[in-house]
């Protein structure tokens, strides 16, 4: 049975004691009820635990990015930041929960590109990304890679494009499920190459990658977070990265632009959001903390390992990200509609 002493060792470093943590929980509960109190609340913000809600499972790329920035943000805000995973329905459960949470800055949503595609995928979304949230800022953009099983003939992106155009009827393209970044990138790939391939859906990246390594499916487009290790070791073939710049951890991979597929530009961006009624002063606090976290050397190094970089300071602002979110919504809507993809 769990007993005190062991937790003294295993406790988060930030918390002062078990009692302290219990007290912090009580404080959180207290804040939950009395929140939304406007200026007073904003002035004393933050004075309790801040919860970052991650709409995907612990250990996934979004979760990893969240936990990376949570630590320096917590240091900057002077309060513990707790990461909570609320999975379900392509991230819309978590987003719905945060949209209706107390707008007091203690509940923050981390979401990725799916924030912009959900309105096109779900017909009865209980929230509107632009209207029901205030953006805190963009966090990072993870490049995507075009990869294939390692015994597929083509060796360059050009050859791959020719190959899929030639063999449209038999080429299979894997994705990690409806609305997943890999599916979106796959849609773009088919659009850019003017092909219709057989899409094979998986429940998450893990099994999709397993089948790709096992040679069961032909190609996939996924985040560097998931594919870097496999490309480096030659378990799968990498053709290109989908960002304007090459990626440090995969220096041999050309960009799609260099390799002759300039239309295929996509990255998995991550952003932070709070409910729309949250006072501006609190949003500013969070944005400032985010900007500091993004200059943290540890964050920069770790993101580089994942093939990603923190966004420049001018993008990590509410204004810039709101604009980006709105343009992303407009970008994906016709693509998703044309492909006939729907999640309900």
């Amino acid at each position: 049975m769990p007993r005190g002493p062991r937790y003294d060792i295993a406790r988060p470093r930030r918390s002062r004691s078990v009692i302290g943590l219990a007290a912090a929980t009580l404080t959180l509960a207290a804040c939950g009820g009395g929140g939304g109190g406007g200026e007073d609340a904003a002035a004393s913000y933050p004075d309790g635990d801040i919860t970052f809600v991650v709409p995907f499972s612990a250990g996934g790329p979004t979760d990893t990015v969240t936990r990376l920035i949570a630590e320096p943000m917590s240091a900057e805000l002077g309060q513990p930041v707790v990461v909570q995973n609320v999975e379900g329905a392509g991230g819309t459960i978590a987003a719905g929960q945060v949209a209706s949470a107390e707008p007091d800055g203690y509940t923050v949503l981390m979401h990725h590109i799916g924030m912009s595609t959900a309105p096109s995928l779900y017909s009865d979304l209980p929230y509107a990304p632009l209207e029901d949230f205030k953006t805190v800022g963009l966090v990072t953009e993870v490049p995507m890679t075009i990869v294939a099983r390692n015994d597929l003939e083509p060796t360059t992106l050009e050859e791959l494009v020719a190959y899929v155009q030639e063999n449209q009827d038999t080429v299979t393209i894997a994705n990690a499920g409806i609305g997943a970044a890999s599916q979106l990138c796959g849609l773009l790939f088919q659009q850019a190459t003017d092909t219709t391939l057989t899409e094979v859906a998986y429940e998450g990246t893990g099994p999709a990658l397993t089948d790709l390594v096992g040679g069961q499916v032909d190609i996939m487009c996924d985040q560097t977070t998931n594919t870097t290790g496999q490309i480096q070791s030659g378990e799968i073939k990498g053709y290109a990265v989908t960002t304007p710049e090459r990626v440090e951890s995969l220096p041999d991979l050309p960009t799609t632009e260099e390799a002759g597929l300039p239309d295929l530009q996509v990255g998995v961006w991550h952003g932070l959001y709070v409910p729309t009624e949250t006072p501006d002063a609190i949003v500013e606090e969070l944005t400032a903390a985010l900007q500091v976290a993004l200059t943290d050397q540890n964050v920069i190094d770790q993101l580089a390992e994942l093939g990603a970089t923190p966004v420049p300071e001018e993008d990590a602002t509410p204004e810039a990200h709101t604009e980006q979110l709105s343009s992303q919504i407009d970008l994906w809507q016709p693509i998703i509609e044309e492909a006939g993809v729907s999640a309900d």
């Binding site: 499972s57 612990a58 250990g59 996934g60 790329p61 979760d63 990893t64 936990r67 990376l68 998450g204 893990g206 977070t225 870097t228 290790g229 496999q230 480096q232 070791s233 378990e235 951890s249 190094d301 770790q302 390992e305 994942l306």
Partner: peptide, 21 residues
């Protein structure tokens, strides 16, 4: 799912899981 979580633990440590580990 548990193994997926361990991948996350490795990533956070700056180790990219894969055959090279």
């Amino acid at each position: 799912a548990v193994m997926a979580l361990l991948i996350g633990a490795l990533l956070i440590q700056g180790i990219v899981p894969g055959p090279n580990v």
